[in-house]
Simulated assay, not measured.
Amino acid sequence: MTRLRDIPGIGVDIVGDAADAAGDPEFLRLENLDTDLRPPAVAIAATRAAIDDDAANSYLPFHGHRSLRAAAAAHVGRICGRAYDADTECVGVAGGLNGVLNTLLATVEPGQEVVLCDPVYAGLVNRVRLAGGVPRFVPAQPTAAGWTVDAERLAAAVGPDTAAVLMMGPAMPTGLVLDDRHWCALADACERHDAWLIYDAAMERIRFDGRPPSHPAVHDGLARRTITVGSASKELRLIGWRVGWVVGPAEIIADVRLVGLSNVVCQAGLAQDAVAAALDAPDADADVAAATAEWRRRCETVMRQLAAYPVIRPHGGWSLLVDTGPLGLGAAELSRRLFERAKIAATPMDGWGPSGEHYLRIVFANEPVERLAGLGDRFRLAVP
């Protein structure tokens, strides 16, 4: 099947299944984007209430409950300072990556390019390929302070064959954060080449610098070209609820809605009011800030534990990368050694874009500081 020819697996399932099969509680589970931090209490209460609500046990409405769309449109509007109509400029989806795929299918003709940063999450680049798009990668550079990508180089990647620019901030798996320089440069490039900017906002408030999100639609030059894909999985810790949203100009949202009718169809009915309640809660920002503070604590613990290794600091998100090149190992070999010698489950990024084979992903969101405090000793068992 040519559609799958350039789409490898993501490796997370292989490592995770092996760790599950081992059944050993001593394993550090650093392979999958899970977190042990509880979801907002208001969301749990709303989910329980939905069990007795017959309307929650329905396919309808296909494009998302009104409560979800109103909450999501208001949430995106608060962040970017613009008003969105819940009925025409927002559609519900079954999680963020479903929203990304639906949006790509609505904006990318087969053979057109989609600009992404590299290193990249395999789930994003694989969906570009499933949609028939051609990934065009702009390399991010690792520095002592973290990841950076040149704004002008990013903008220069947008050309006459570009259908869309797919950005995330903080990005998975690097923790790269984009700012006004990048959006200003992209605004001119997208306008010149009539390209969409698809913004994956799943982690936009999970920043370790204490600053608010940097949303592209804040900029007048990008507002009418920005399609925001949001998710309850990361910031709200509602992974199993499988609810997300797509917000943008009415004309393209109509197409995204049409794609959705043929792909997954609808979101989990039991979960939508729960997500709406979490987005609308008066303490919603404080809740995300508290979770972010804990994830940052865990990140700093990992950075200290692995200070002797080539680890690149993330500026947010749930994961960081180890550069395996200076260790004289491929990512798959390092993953194998850590699993067999140190009881660490971590995912090699083989197939995750051009540079993937050089990096091992460490997820710090799912293990407490007390367990992460022994990470350095375990690494030394695998890489003396």
Score class of each variant (00 low, 15 high):
Val120Thr: 13
Pro160Asp: 14
Leu116Cys: 12
Cys184Trp: 02
Leu60His: 10
Ala331Ile: 12
Gly353Tyr: 08
Met203Lys: 09
Gly376Ala: 07
Asp377Lys: 09
Asp180Cys: 08
Arg371Asn: 00
Ile7Pro: 03
Ala145Arg: 15
Ala45Phe: 11
Ile253Phe: 02
Arg127Cys: 05
Gly92Phe: 10
Thr47Phe: 14
Gly353Arg: 06
Ala373Asn: 10
Trp318Ser: 09
Ala163Lys: 09
Asp24His: 13
Arg237Tyr: 00
Thr228Ala: 07
Cys190Leu: 09
Pro212Gly: 14
Ile7Tyr: 05
Ala86Met: 07
Ala286His: 12
Asp220Tyr: 00
Cys299Ile: 01
Trp241Cys: 00
Ala342Gly: 04
Val383Pro: 01
Glu26Trp: 08
Glu370Lys: 06
Asp53Met: 05
Ala157Asn: 03
Asn32Asp: 11
His215Ala: 12
Asp255Gly: 00
Ile362Trp: 04
Arg38Thr: 01
Pro249Asp: 06
Gly316Tyr: 06
Ala122Asn: 10
Cys266Gly: 01
Ile7His: 01
Gln305Asp: 01
Ala18Glu: 15
Thr88Asp: 08
Arg297Asp: 10
Arg242Val: 05
Ala308Pro: 01
Leu154Met: 14
Ala185Thr: 03
Ala307Lys: 07
Glu31Cys: 14
Gly99Pro: 07
Gly92Tyr: 06
Met172Ser: 07
Lys234Asn: 11
Leu104Asn: 13
Ala41Thr: 14
Leu154Gln: 04
Val138Tyr: 09
Arg337Val: 06
Ala157Asp: 08
Arg237Cys: 05
Asp6Ile: 01
Asp6Arg: 14
Arg380Glu: 15
Leu178Pro: 08
Gly210Asp: 07
Thr347Phe: 09
Arg337Tyr: 04
Arg378Gly: 02
Gly325Leu: 09
Ser355His: 09
Leu116Glu: 10
Phe339Ala: 15
Thr103Phe: 09
Gly330Ser: 15
Arg66Asp: 04
Tyr59His: 08
Ala164Ser: 13
Tyr309Asp: 06
Ala223Val: 04
Pro326Phe: 07
Cys299Asp: 04
Leu375Asp: 00
Gly221Val: 01
Arg237Pro: 00
Ala278Trp: 00
Asp285Val: 10
Arg38Gln: 08
Pro314His: 11
Gly376Pro: 02
Arg313Ile: 03
Thr148Gln: 12
Ala73Lys: 02
